[in-house]
Write a protein that binds this DNA or RNA. Structure first.
Length: 271
DNA sequence: CAACGGACCTGCCTGC
DNA sequence: TGCAGGCAGGTCCGTT
C-alpha cells in the first residue's frame, strides 16, 4: 500500500475537490474487498454532502452528517478523482459519484483494501478506536515509545509497525527510520533506552515528513488524488538496497526476513 | 496479555 | 514463448 505519506497525499489531493459536494450514488462493480462493501454504504451515502476528508492512520474518512465512509487502500489501492463517465478499468471496483459529474474511483488490484460505513463518530469505529498515536502529532514522542515498549520482547521493527503502538509506519519507513536512528531492527523493543527512543521518534517523523513534502511516494504505480503519477523523489537509504554500500560507512547493507517482511539494515551503523 | 503464523488477492519478475 | 514459483508497500484474526 500506500504508506502513510501516500494516504496523506491522496487526502490532500481529493479534499478540495470533494468537500461540500453531494454524493449522488455509489457504484459497486466488485464488492469482494478485504471485507464486503456494506449495503449501508450504498444506501446511506447518496444524498449526503462531504463535510470533510479526514485521515486516521492509513484510513481516509469521508465525513457526512449521516455517517462516515472509511477507506483503506490496502497494499495496492488508489483513490482518484475522475469524470464520472470515464470508462472503468479491470480493477476499478467502486465509484463514489457526485452530483457535479465527478467521481472518486477506488481501484485496488489486490483487493486488500476496504470501504466501510459507520453511523457512529468515526473515531469510535472498532478499527480506529484502539489505534496508537499519529506519528506527526504532538502526543507521539520518544518518551511515549519508551513507555509503550516496557517489558516487550518483540523486535523493535515489528514493534513500530504495530498500529496499536503508532500508526502509519509501514515496512519502507520502518527500515529507513531504524537506519537513521542507528538501531538494529532485531533488538528487543523493551531493551532500548529512552534516549535512543527519542532519536527513533524523531527519525520516524523525519522520514514521513520528507516523503509527504516530496508529494508522496516511492510506489511505482501510485497515482495521487488528482490523477498525477507519483514521484521517485524520496531517497531511500537502505530499503531495497541489499548488498549496496551503506551511505554512512560503505559496508554492504544486509537483507533479512522478519515476520515474512524484508528488512534492510547496516550491521555496522545499527546496534 | 504477548507473540507468531496464516489469511486475504493479483501482478510482476525471474529462471527454467 | 510459456509456465511455475516467489515476492510485493498491510493488517486483522486465531492459536499458542
Amino acid at each position: 500500500m500506500p504508506e502513510l505519506p501516500e494516504v496523506e497525499t491522496t487526502r490532500r489531493g481529493i479534499a478540495p475537490h470533494v468537500t461540500g459536494r453531494i454524493v449522488s450514488r455509489v457504484l459497486v462493480r466488485e464488492p469482494r474487498l478485504r471485507w464486503p462493501v456494506p449495503h449501508a454504504l450504498i444506501e446511506q451515502l447518496p444524498g449526503q454532502a462531504i463535510a470533510s476528508v479526514g485521515r486516521r492512520g492509513k484510513y481516509l474518512l469521508l465525513e457526512t452528517a449521516a455517517g462516515a465512509a472509511l477507506v483503506h487502500l490496502g497494499m495496492s489501492g488508489s483513490l482518484r478523482l475522475i469524470e464520472a463517465d470515464a470508462p472503468p478499468g479491470t480493477h476499478d471496483h467502486v465509484d463514489i459519484v457526485f452530483a457535479d459529474g465527478h467521481a472518486l474511483r477506488f481501484r485496488d488490484p489486490r483487493r486488500f483494501g476496504s470501504l466501510l460505513w459507520t453511523t457512529r463518530p468515526s473515531q469510535e469505529h472498532p478499527l480506529l478506536r484502539d489505534l496508537g498515536p499519529e506519528p506527526l502529532d504532538g502526543d507521539f514522542s520518544g518518551g511515549y515509545l519508551s513507555a509503550a515498549a516496557r517489558g516487550r520482547r518483540v523486535a523493535v521493527k515489528p514493534f513500530i509497525m504495530n498500529s496499536h503502538v503508532v500508526v502509519g509506519v509501514g515496512n519502507i519507513y520502518a527500515n529507513e527510520a531504524l537506519y537513521l536512528a542507528g538501531i538494529h531492527p532485531r533488538r528487543a523493543a523493551g531493551r532500548i533506552g529512552r534516549d535512543r527512543y527519542h532519536r527513533l521518534a524523531a527519525a520516524i517523523r523525519r522520514v514521513l515528513d520528507e516523503s509527504i513534502t516530496a508529494g508522496g511516494t516511492t510506489l511505482r504505480d501510485f497515482i495521487n488524488g488528482v490523477g498525477e503519477p507519483g514521484y521517485f523523489a524520496v531517497h531511500l537509504r537502505v530499503y531495497g538496497r541489499g548488498g549496496e554500500p551503506c551511505p554512512g560507512c560503505a559496508r554492504p547493507i544486509r537483507e533479512i526476513r522478519q515476520g515474512q517482511r524484508s528488512t534492510f539494515y547496516c550491521p555496522a551503523c545499527q546496534k
